[in-house]
Each structure stands twice: as C-alpha cells, then as structure tokens.
Design a protein around this nucleic acid. Structure first.
Lengths: 337, 337
DNA sequence: TTGTATGCGTTATCAT
DNA sequence: ATGATAACGCATACAA
C-alpha cells in the first residue's frame, strides 16, 4: 500500500494525504479530509515507507551502535542504555558487534554511512594502534562529512565527542581504599598492553600505590587478554611464579571472576589467602562468592549519555562528558587486621 | 556525493556508473570504464545511499531483532548469534529491546515494517496472554504481507517459523539426572504462571518427577518473576514457609543465582543444606560458587538458526527447528549418599 | 557494451 | 486549504 493509493481511496490528492498522515509542523488540513485519509489508511493497512521518507526528507531515523562484543555484559548494558535513549528520540538502533576485531570497526562505520544513520556511537576502548585508529578516524570523518554525528565511549583520541569513564581516578580511589583496609602487597592483572582502558586502570592503580609508598613488587603486574580466560591465565601465572601478594586487582570484573576461578583451582582461598578486586560492577556478577570488591560504573547511564551527546547539536569542538565510578568494597577484600 | 556526480567525473552515464560500482550479476562494463568510475568514486569519496538503493531495488538490507532485554545475558548471547549470521548474509541488525513490556513488541514490529526490514527475529518466550499474542500475530501478519519474513525463538504459537528450545524434555532430563544422584524431595522456583518458557520447564520437571514417584511436596512450587530478584524472593519464601526440600530447581540460571544468594543470606548452605539447579548455562555465570548444575542451551547457535530460518525461502507452512539442551551436573548438586 | 528514460514512495515547493 | 509537480539517489528495462 502506497500513499497514492490511500489518497485515491480517500478521494484527495497525494499531497493532502501526506500532510494528513504525517501531520507535520503546520498541520493545515481540514478535519473531515484528515479523517477520511486516516480512515482510508487504516482500511488499507497503510504503512509509510521509511526509506522513501528518508530520501524525501533527507534524513533517516536510525542510530548506529558499534561494540566489541554484544554478548559481553559490559557492552550489553551500554546497549541497553543506548536503546532507551534512542527510543525516546524515536530512533531505531542498528547494532554492530566487531567480535573484538578492530578491522571491522571502520567497515561498520562505512555501512552506517551508507545507511545515512543520524549518529554513530562507538563503545569500547581504543587500542594503542595508530594505524587502526587512523583508519577509524578517517571512516568517522567521512561519516560526519556525510552529515552524521558521532560519540565515543572510552578515550578521547579520535577528535569527537566522548563519554570518558574515570578509569584512572577511580582505580586510584580503589587503591587508596584497599590500602586503607590494610593491604600493602598488591598484584595487578593488567589486561593487554595496548588496551587503553586497561592501561588507564593499571596506571591509576599503581600511581596511587606509588604515592602511598606500596608499589606492586617486581613481577606482580601480569598482562593478558581482557577476558575471563585472560584473568584466569594471568592469575595462574601470578600465583605460580609471581611474588607473594595480599591482593590482586583485575582490571575488570570478568577477569576478576576468572582470577577467582584460577585461585580456586589451585587451592588458594579467596579472600583468606589472597584478596581480589575488579572493575565495572557487572550486575550479573553481583552475587558471586565471595562478593566482589569493584568500582561501579553506571553503564546504562553511560549509554544514555553517549546517545544524548551524539544527538545534541554538534559544537565547534569535541565535547567530553566525564562519568565517575564508585568504589564498592565487598567480601572479596575484607579489612586486614 | 551522488552517483550522478561520480558518473560525470568519470565521463560516463549514470547507468554505467551504477553498473560499474554495483557490479551485479552480469557485470557488463568495459574494464577501462569501470576503472575510471571506481577511481572517480574513490576520489569523490562516494558512498552509495542505502535508502535510495532500497527504494530502487525494492528491498532493504536490514534485519530486525526483538528481545525482552538486551542487558540480559540470555538475550545478548542470542543477539551475538544473530549478529554473526546477519553479517554473513550482509545484513544490518536493527535491535529492539522491549524492557519486558509486551505492548512494545507489536510497536517494534510496526517500526520494522516501516523500515521494510527483510526479516524479523522475535526472541523471548511468549506469555499466556491471548490479547497480547493476538496483537503481535496481527502485526507480524502485516509485516509478512508487506514482504518480510519472520522467525520466532520460543513457543510455536504465532503461526510462523520457530526455533523451539527443548525446555520440556530437557527439564525432564535434568529431573531424572538429579533423581539418579539420589535426590528425592524437590522444590521448584517456577517463574511467572503465564510465562510459557517457565511453564514448560516446570511441567517437564514435575512430570518426570511424577513418573519417578517423587513429585514435589505440597507448597514446594513457588512462582515469582523470571529474574534474579524473582529467584531470591521465591527461594526466601520456600525456605521460610515451604516444606523441607533437598534440591531446588530454578527455571533459569539468573533465578538460581538469586536463590543461592537468598539461601546464603539465611545461613542455609548450598549445596550442603539445599542443592540448587538452574537452566540455560549462562556463560558469565559458569564461575559462580558453587558451580551451578544446569541445562546448557547453545544460545549463539539458536540465534544463528533463527536467522537462517528467517532468511530461508519461506515454505508453505510454519517450520520448526528443535534445539536440544544438555544437562550439566556440577557442584551445586553433588551426588547424595 | 553503453546510454536514455522511467519508476521506486515520499516530502516539499509552488501555484491555485 | 488543496492540488499538481518536481525533487531525492539509485536501479533497470529498453533502445541504440
């Protein structure tokens, strides 16, 4: 069913039908005609063609979201926030999951450029890879040149509006809180060396420890993947061949869970033999045993903020929205006598 | 940059440019012209307008996915599978999260109808609500009438292709396995009474127990929400005022986690005082303590299967794809002496 | 093989 | 207030 058919059925012109159904700004259509049109549309089960509207209007009603892995609770929470905000703005969300493959990111940006999406939200930290970041920057530049806006969640290094999570300062807060609890010998499961989020969390944590005069001992910082298995592996390594530590900070909750599993598999009790802390406060993991000390990041709000940032009238220079984390002390790091 | 500009820049006609860039079926364009066009397109940073293409071709390149809550690991895993399959088919995924509000489902179907999506995948069990299901059926009917295809994940009751998860038989398998382990007195955290997935799991479990001669005692089946909090609440109720039971079956993992938390908060040890089993085998929860006995459902594969089903040439009558579950026995239900 | 011309469904401009 | 008509950007049937 096209609008023309509705118009014919209602005995009015195409233009009138369009005005009646869209009811845009200056809705200047006689009530009786309007009703006739609406009735005809209803009878014919008319459904406006969004693609045609997009062409005629010159703008679409869709919003792109690029994440590393939608099955990761970190990203699915952000996606939930983006979905909420998008619905409020009457936009449809086009989801792209890169499966942790950076080369797919610019490809998805190109896809969304072809779709003429209104805005793109790129979630997930950058990596320290100039070439990949360069390609991404270029793709986003093309997208913006074609009229779209962009918001990042992560590090502000692609010259676009960004929601910045306080990885560094919150990790420092966590370090200080744990020091306060009496811990002195810390280990860190630090994630990949080129993963900026991981690096920031590591840096904030160790810097604070340095200031407190209790830096991690030699060999107590272990790098690995940013995943559950990465946490497991790094923890195994640390327990096997690292220096003895009282507490291990995993740079995200999922890694912390892997770390706890590794400890358990080796017969090392948490928190009696070694305490563990994470980062993110993933909802699904709030009930694990022992309850995990972590930094709560309001991920839904981050998604909402990014969407609003992307949709706001673009300023002349990149805006930054800072989102703070909250240290949450739980059983996995009991006060130390 | 439009295709016309590219054509002019390359000194060819619009049609030739179109053929050169699209390179469809019978790619009949002279190599030198083709190169000129591609070069011009590159120089002008031409990006085809997917909306215009959709109009001209009469079909889009997008796939709709409707879930209850994208932040729920059950759905985010399915979404990952759908994303994978969609990428293979060169389709963009439009994600809609209903926040558990059934009235939003048909609204999203209408949205996707307007977008002229190629197919819609509806994940998440139906509820026993004739009115809501009726509206949904109607919306999907309109969508298919407009040329789209549909696949469901859940119960086959909307007259469309469906991926059916073996909730009933797998729950029965689980019951038998636990009986084999020596358990005799079972309780069930059964979810909402009108939630079909929950009902199927409850029914399969209790039927098997009936056959084994060990039905749940009076009052040992407690209904609540299909969420972590629902599990917590139902477990609290059961422990407080229900009959004594040896094992509690929560109809999904998230509820089982809530149940374990409730037990812990009451000082009831799991599995020493009461064993707990779940359903789904959510990846993020594989490391909880005690490790959870559950039924593994290959959610990624379910998402892939649903996508393939939705994209396959529509048959004359609804097809069903059955996906089985695997009982996984872990520490939360140790063999009983 | 290439070009011309038409149509896709809608909005917006311009008369009336 | 309403209607005729020209865009929008592209694919394709048809003609050359």
């Amino acid at each position: 069913m096209t609008l023309s058919q509705v118009a014919r059925e209602a005995g009015v012109s195409l233009a009138t039908a369009s005005r009646a159904i869209n009811g845009s700004a200056n809705r200047t259509v006689r009530p009786d005609l309007r009703d006739r049109v609406l009735e005809a549309a209803e009878r014919l089960r008319y459904s406006p063609d969004a693609n045609a509207q997009a062409m005629a209007r010159g703008r679409t009603t869709s919003l792109g979201l690029i994440v590393h892995d939608i099955a990761d609770p970190y990203f699915s929470s952000i996606a939930a926030g983006v979905g909420l905000a998008a619905e409020r703005a009457d936009l449809a969300v086009t989801l792209a999951s890169t499966q942790h493959d950076p080369s797919r990111e610019p490809r998805f940006v190109e896809l969304l450029t072809r779709q003429r999406a209104r805005a793109i939200i790129v979630a997930g930290g950058r990596r320290d890879d100039d070439e990949a970041n360069g390609r991404m920057r270029e793709a986003l530049e093309d997208f913006r040149h074609s009229g779209g806006t962009v918001a990042l969640i992560g590090q502000p290094l692609l010259d676009v509006d960004t929601v910045v999570i306080s990885n560094r300062s919150s990790s420092a807060d966590l370090a200080r809180a744990l020091h306060e609890h009496g811990y002195r010998r810390f280990g860190v499961l630090a994630g990949p060396t080129d993963h900026l989020t991981a690096c920031d969390r590591l840096a904030g944590f160790t810097e604070a420890l340095d200031e407190l005069g209790t830096p991690p001992p030699e060999g107590a910082v272990v790098h690995s993947a940013f995943t559950r298995d990465g946490g497991y592996e790094a923890m195994s390594t640390l327990l096997r061949q690292g220096p003895p530590v009282e507490l291990v900070f995993a740079v995200n909750d999922v890694m912390a869970v892997g770390a706890i599993a590794a400890a358990r598999d080796r017969g090392t009790a948490v928190p009696q033999d070694v305490a563990v802390a994470g980062f993110d406060d993933i909802v699904t993991l709030r009930d694990i045993t022992p309850a995990l000390t972590t930094v709560r990041v309001p991920l839904i709000e981050v998604g909402i903020a990014a969407t609003e940032l992307a949709l706001a009238a673009p300023g002349d220079e990149p805006r930054l929205v800072h989102v703070g984390g909250t240290v949450v002390l739980r059983e996995s790091t009991p006060p130390r006598g």
